[in-house]
Amino acid sequence: MPGRRGLIAAASLLGLALLWAWATSPFGPVSPERFPSPPLVGAAFLQIATTGFAGATLPRQVLTSLGLVIEGFLVAASSGTALGLAMGWNRRFAAFVNPVFQLLRPIPPLAWIPLVILWLGLGNAAKVLVIWFAAFVPAVINAETGVREIPGALLEAARMLGTPRHRLLVEVVVPAAAPMIFTGLRLCLQATWTTLVAAELVGSFYGLGHVLSEAQQDIYPGMIFVGMAAIGVCGWLTTAVLGWVERRLLGWHASARPAHA
């Protein structure tokens, strides 16, 4: 079955590629000046891979963005999950933190960019801070909900079995909330990429967002495509890694939780 579905997927992608090649060819309706043809994209790819574009070659641009994504994700995910766990576990703490959280939440993360650039300039610290504003929120909300939704009987069972209070976090709270925590982490990763590219578009020296913004100024659609494709591939890669970690850690959860747990 998966073999057949793989075949259908390959046919779909091949169809799209053929449509693209035809549409941007001299026989097609689209001007390659606006919508680059496959050869133009290929040429742009060769250029950035060998001589470079927007100040560096492709590996350096990719590694700059990927490094920032990983750094921003780790900072936002760990701090957000920790805060969410604490808020879920302690109602009073949640009541204390929530007003600030609700006050800041409606501000779109990208609206912080001007202020952050004033504070930290165009460097990496500024990017990580903007990412943090965006990616922190889903990590907090999902971890908090995850803890809140732990069935009371599970905590009672653990206490009845003599689990000391300080061990409950490791023994019950984190594993029971883990499926929700991972939902938060997936959203967190998505927000990380979105925000990073936006922040790089606004101002940066290297990175895939920087490639996009330079290519736009040069009216170079082929290079814009290369930049977009590179972001797509990197985003897919990081999501796949996170999915792999989730499957490794939550094997017990994969085939659905029992209805009454």
Binding site: P151, A153, M160, L161, A176, W252, R257, P258, H260, A261
Partner: peptide, 14 residues
């Protein structure tokens, strides 16, 4: 005082 719960309350990850 061991408790047996109506809905078992087993740890699903264990």
């Amino acid at each position: 005082r061991a408790v047996v719960f109506q809905h078992f309350a087993l740890f699903p990850w264990k």
